Every structure is written in structure tokens, then in C-alpha cells.
Computed example of a mutant assay.
Amino acid sequence: MSIPTLTLNNGVTLPALGLGVFQSPPEETAAAVDTALRVGYRHIDTAAMYRNEREVGEGLRRSGVPREEVFVETKVWVSDYGYDETRHAFEKAVAKLGIDRLDLLILHQPAPDRFERTIAAYRGLESLLAEGRVRAIGVSNFMPPHLHELMARTEVVPAVNQIELHPYFTQPEVQRADAEHGILDQAWSPIGGITFYPGWGEERRSVMDDPTLREMAAQHRRSAAQVMLRWHLQRGRSAIPKSTDPGRIAENFDVADFELTADELDRIDALDTGVRNGPDPDVARPERFDIAIPEA
């Protein structure tokens, strides 16, 4: 078996498993991307707000892997929403990455407190898609009402919705809405990392320590992280685990040669607590949304 390839609703394909670089320090990001590509990853996810697009590009070049073999996606931050502003955000992103075309460009937040600008931003994405400057467009953290309003007022159905999705928070309503429109679910925090990142609260349980997952990991002679990533792949999702540790990067990619049973998949689904650990997309956060993204 190998890491599956998924086909988006516009026919573009991407490797289901990618490397995420959220909270990866810039000084460690290039090495992490280089390591991942040498291990076999061919999908990298970043964002303007992560402040490490430049280092992602450096890692891509350092690896020696041809650009056309790597699926590169990034996200437009809220402060760059608006038609012209989003087109300029694309220019900033490709300049920092050192490439001339993006495989996927998505809006980072629905920003319901300024949704008119969100709509204008998405129309900017549509124009970039029509011009062939991006191969696919999408959204991140969009809940069903956000999706429905967006699609009622724009032309192109998002190819991807990147959302918080791990065994303790599966967002079934969002998954159903995405499936209804052929939108691919892409899991950020796919192994529950958000539950134990520093600064996110001391009372949250690490998904890694869940007894059900640890039992399955022992049975398959794998780690709990590998079990969770296998769960995502078998459920037909894209997942972008983050790590800067070479051993963890390799371990997270080593999930192609075992399979979970239907019962095991259902048992993992049943771990859902319905409790969000990341930011609520319906809550306005002007102190964050207004942070300016530097020029290239």
C-alpha cells in the first residue's frame, strides 16, 4: 500500500497526507520541509499567518525534489481579505515561497464579522483560478452557514475545507455539509496536537493518551499518532500533521502498510466529545484578524 491520492472536485489530485507547519518556528521550518520531502511527503501546507512561507520555499529548494512533484498550499489571512487585497496576498505568498503557481489557495477564516470582505476575497481566489495562477481554491474553518452563504454568492464550489478534526472533535455536521457539495475535508490538528499545545489550557486531555487509541496502537504495533492518521486516510480525508522532529516526521508518514478494521474506525469515531479546542470560527477576533501580513 502507499499513501492515497485524493481527487478534488475540479479534478486536481493531491496526496492525502501532507506536512503541516503551524507553529513551526521559521528557523526550524526549512529543515522540517526538507526532511519531509526526503522521507517521501509530496504535500506541504502553510499559511501567511504562520510567518514561515519563505522557509517552506527554502526547504522545497533544499530538498532537490522538482517543484511539479510537490503539492503546495497556503492560506490568505483575514487582514488581506477583499478582491484586490487577496490578489495581492497571492503575490506576497508566491514571492515568499519562491514559486510562480500555487496548487491550493484558501481563505484562513470565515471572519463573520466582516463577511462582505470574505466574499470579495473568495471572488479574488476565483479570478486567480480562472487565470491559472492557482490550481484549486478553498476555505478553512468554515461552518455550514458560512459555506451556504459563500456558495450562494460565488461561482466556484470550494475544493477543500480545512477544519479542526481529530478523534475528540470530528465535526460531523461540517463533514456532512462538505460531502453534500463535494468539498474535501482536510484535517488540521489531525492527531489532536491542539489539545496539548502550550498556551491552550492545562485541563485539556491529550488524544495521544486515550486508552482506546493506545490499545489499538499496541495491537497494530504502531503509535497512537499513526493510528489516528490511518483513521483519517481510511475515512477519505486529507490530513496535515505538524512536526519539526525528523523521527516524528518519518513516523507520521509510515502509515501505508497497515489497516484498521471497520469496527476500529467506528470506535475512533465514537471518541468524539463535541468540544472544540481551537478558536471558534463564529467568534470575531479583531485583535487577531487585523494583524498585517508583511510584504515579500
Rank of each mutant, 00 (worst) to 15 (best):
Q226T: 05
T261V: 09
A256K: 06
A32W: 10
T86A: 14
T244M: 13
P144L: 07
S189K: 03
E91V: 06
D280F: 11
V76D: 05
E295A: 08
H146I: 04
S189C: 03
Y122G: 05
V174A: 14
T29R: 12
I240H: 02
N252Q: 09
L213V: 00
L147E: 01
V134N: 08
W200M: 11
R61H: 13
E287W: 15
H220L: 12
T170Y: 11
Y197E: 03
E173I: 04
A16Y: 00
A296C: 00
L8M: 07
N141M: 07
E126M: 11
F71R: 08
R285S: 02
Q162K: 07
G192Y: 00
A136G: 09
V70T: 11
L147W: 07
E53T: 02
G18D: 01
D272G: 05
A224V: 03
G82R: 14
F115Q: 10
A130V: 00
L271Q: 06
E131K: 13
T212L: 10
D84T: 12
E116S: 15
E53K: 04
A120S: 14
T7V: 14
E259D: 02
P198W: 02
A224C: 03
S206P: 13
G182V: 08
E91L: 04
D280H: 08
L37H: 02
N161H: 10
